[in-house]
Amino acid sequence: MLTIMARSSTPSRITIAFGAEAALVDAAVSQTVAAIRGQERDAQKVTVVASSPDGGVIIRDAGAPTLFGDSTILVVTGADSASDEVDEALRELIAMESDTVWLIVTHPGVVKGKNLMDALRKAGAVQIECAALKRGKETLDYLAREVASHKRHMAPDALTVLYDAIGQDLRLLTAAVSQLMSDVETDPVTADDVRSYFGGVAEVSGFAISDAVWDRRSVDAFRSLRWAMQSSDNVAVATVSALAAGLRSIVRVAGVGAGASEQDVAREAGVPPWQVKTLRRQWAGWSGDQRRLAASAVALADADGALKGGVIEGSSLDSEQKRMALERLIIQASGRGA
């Protein structure tokens, strides 16, 4: 998980999660709540969206003294767009200095709502920085802290490989670190470990899958497909269309004839010149297996129909079946032999 707070720290009565990185804000709120519950096990959590018109009423209710002095954790989200009622109710609440209410406010760190934030800070709020991490060193430092929180080590180049492979998405990065920590038993984790888990992930787009398929690298194609489908539910049709575009380029280049210069081929086949070499290589890879390549064209159209609700009525697929259809397609297209 994302580590925001030191484990031993005592929560403040008022906490501000300040910044636009949603992953960090979520972690800040959930860890603050956990810390509060560590002190007061039965504290009730109430969440209020600051822009909601009845938010003020809920906040006043939460702030009202209770019969048995039960504690309430009041989470107010999106304080930059707080309605007038919410703004007022929050100011009343901090003026009360209640000792049964724990207040957590999230704010995306913009200028709007600054006045209210200042009032909270004046009342002794602790601020957790949740600003989006800058690319590069800042994110790498964050990754290193993440690793340290697991009481493990990772070689600096391994961190770089992981960061390059996954990109800026903090949630994915955090999940990847925690997967590495639990799957790799040796310490420190090396760059090779990272590559074997996350190699080829960065460029997971339909085109990466397409390249792998037409290069007949089935394993890479599968790994990319799994990753693509994990990061988004709606990649199936896009994947088919990328595969079709890839096949089309290969076939067009093949149709121009081997003697022509790369420039001529590119112009005639309608592909970028720098791709011609790759496309020719891919075509050559299928020279002894043309029938299978032709069959792929049929399989692609079939898959497109299946993924778009079925050509024959009543043959639409659920998401699991769609994944299987794509995997079958990849086996069919990238495999060898009949």
């Binding site: 497109d304 129909g305 778009k308």
Partner: peptide
């Protein structure tokens, strides 16, 4: 059934 026409023709 909305299969990409070019793909269907290929």
């Amino acid at each position: 059934a909305n299969v990409t026409p070019l793909l269907a023709m290929e």
